[in-house]
């Protein structure tokens, strides 16, 4: 992928962050930090030529199934709107009366597959879909985005055991490994490491990547439709919770705190600054 294409994705990621910030400011809700850690993963899936979806026909039988299992990842909304699953103006009423977009993406929203948000359901649901695809000889892929805190749920490992046993190599799990739960770092209160080894011991292929690097993410997913392995694949995408906002990064308190007061302008400024940098980079690429 060319440098220009990477910058294009980075600009899209920044646009997603700005849209997500404005949604949260308007609705006075939190969960921005969790949403920001998975932006590059989502942008890669939807703009990096990974997922096959049809916004005109959200239930197209051959679509890839994407399950947002980690719950508060509302950065998916601007992406789905931008893709054409629903009008952009729906973002303006996020978490307000008569809206379709709640704090957690559920399956009443075009472009989503399941009711998610209670942690530990998505991988089992995805495993069922992947198994059905194999039984029916259908070609779609199933991708599940999990949080790392979510992987403290026992049901994740029940599903991991199932997918490993049934060799669901048409299933890809991506863990947004931002190392933070709600109140503390995962390694401080319920250790996940050695994380990749845990997945491997459940008969998965596991790859650790930089979850904010488009080249890393896209390379890890480059051949995901034609992998030779019989095992399901997990990408442990190392990320930073609150990525993109200096005052928010790696601070547990921001999990559920709304962005208000001086932080609103600070956040806008930082994202605008990023935009300017990317524009300069883009100009440079064009020269």
């Amino acid at each position: 992928m060319s440098g220009q294409e990477i910058i294009k994705l980075e600009r899209k990621a920044n646009w997603v962050r700005r849209q997500t910030l404005e949604m949260c400011v308007r609705a006075n809700t939190g969960f921005l930090a969790s949403a920001f850690s998975s932006v590059e993963i989502l942008v890669s899936l939807y703009y990096g030529g990974i997922l096959r979806v049809d916004p005109e026909n959200p239930l197209w039988p051959e679509r890839d199934r994407f399950i947002m299992s980690k719950g508060h990842a509302i950065s998916l909304y601007p992406i789905l709107a931008d893709q054409g699953f629903f009008p952009l103006h729906n973002l303006e009423t996020f978490c307000q009366e008569n809206c379709i977009l709640g704090a957690i993406a559920e399956n009443n929203i075009p472009g989503t597959e399941v009711v998610a948000g209670s942690l530990g359901h998505g991988l089992g649901l995805g495993s069922g879909m992947a198994l059905a695809a194999k039984m029916n000889k259908e070609q779609y892929m199933t991708v599940v985005l999990l949080g790392d805190g979510e992987c403290q749920e026992g049901s994740v490992w029940e599903a991991a055991m199932f997918a490993g046993h049934h060799q669901l190599n048409n299933l890809v799990a991506i863990v947004d490994r931002n190392f933070l739960g709600v109140t503390d770092f995962t390694e401080n209160f319920l250790r996940l490491n050695p994380f990749a080894e845990k997945w491997q011991s459940f008969s998965w292929d596991a790859t650790v990547i930089d979850g904010h690097s488009f080249p890393d993410i896209l390379q890890a997913l480059a051949n995901f439709r034609s992998r030779k392995s019989e095992k399901p694949l997990v990408l442990i995408a190392q990320t930073t919770k609150g990525k993109g906002l200096s005052f928010m990064e790696n601070i547990p308190l921001w999990h559920a705190t709304s962005v208000s007061g001086k932080y609103i302008s600070l956040a806008r400024e930082e994202l605008q600054q990023k935009e300017n940098e990317l524009n300069r980079g883009s100009d440079h690429e064009n020269c």
Binding site: G124, L125, M129, A132, A159, M161, F162
Partner: peptide, 26 residues
């Protein structure tokens, strides 16, 4: 045999697998 799965002693997962299958037409 293709319609039978022993999901193991993992009832929570059995429900979610069933849901995933039902979402796929089973």
């Amino acid at each position: 045999s293709r319609q039978y799965i022993n999901a193991g002693v993992a009832e929570q997962n059995m429900v979610t697998i069933a849901a995933g299958l039902a979402l796929s037409g089973k």
